[in-house]
Amino acid sequence: MLHRLFAGKGLLIALAVGFIAVESIVAACFLSLVHFKTSNNWATRSEQVLLELERMMSTVAGAETSQRGYIITGSEDYLPTYREAVTTLEAQIRRIGGLTRDNAIQQDRVAYLATQVEQRSEELDQGIVTRRAKGLPYAKSVVAVNQHNRTMETIHDISAQIREEETRVLQRHRADSESWAFTTGSFAAVFFLLNAVVFTLCGIVLKMALTSQAQAERLLHSFPRPQPAPATQ
């Protein structure tokens, strides 16, 4: 009876300890996975900012190219592409602002970038209007004056600052993501190993209980059965 009692208690204790340990590992693994996803999402957002910034700079260059083509040739064919580029610039800057809304420093830079892009668009418009109204020589003069404003250089400088900050943020979040991914994988490995240990211990305890029961039954059968007392006359 004692063997069976201790074996039963051992089984219950093993199950309880295993359950608590497994639940703890599952909780830790879940929290680690949440941190991993959060870091990965931040890294993805920084990648989107960098991509959108490159697209914006390409759009600015395309608008300048179309404006220059119109000023040189006077062909209206360049203007639809130019207007489309200007419209696209507004949408791209809004997207960059939305992606950096959690970073106050980046928000200030994006706001300043928006004012400089708007100023550059006005300068390009001024050259187009002058070319249409007064001809190529006057338009060239307007372009030369606008170049002294160094608006495009300012746009490049601000974009470089935004890019540098997002690159730094991206590297940090990538490192965090890789760290949490390793932690999650480690917890998962421990979870499976712990499961194997718990089930092995439960099997050992259960086998001990069954063995003790079998021994007790054999011992019980080995005792001689009591004979009934003879009847008295």
Rank of each mutant, 00 (worst) to 15 (best):
L5N: 11
L5S: 10
F6Y: 09
I13F: 10
L15K: 00
G18F: 02
A21P: 00
A28G: 00
H35L: 04
F36N: 03
L51H: 15
L51N: 14
E52S: 11
L53P: 14
T59K: 01
A61D: 14
G62Y: 12
T65M: 06
Q67K: 04
G69V: 09
G74W: 02
Y78V: 10
T87D: 13
E90A: 12
E90R: 05
R94H: 15
L99C: 14
R109Q: 15
Y112M: 06
R120C: 01
Q126M: 03
R131N: 02
R131W: 05
R132Q: 10
K134E: 13
Y138W: 01
V145I: 11
V145H: 04
R150Q: 06
M152G: 09
D157W: 09
E166N: 15
E166A: 06
R172T: 08
E178C: 01
E178H: 11
W180K: 04
W180S: 09
T184A: 07
G185L: 01
F187A: 00
A188R: 04
A189C: 04
V190C: 06
V190I: 15
F191N: 08
A196V: 01
V197F: 14
C202F: 02
C202I: 10
G203Y: 08
L206S: 12
S212E: 09
L220A: 15
L220I: 12
Q227D: 13
P230W: 05
P230D: 12
A231S: 15
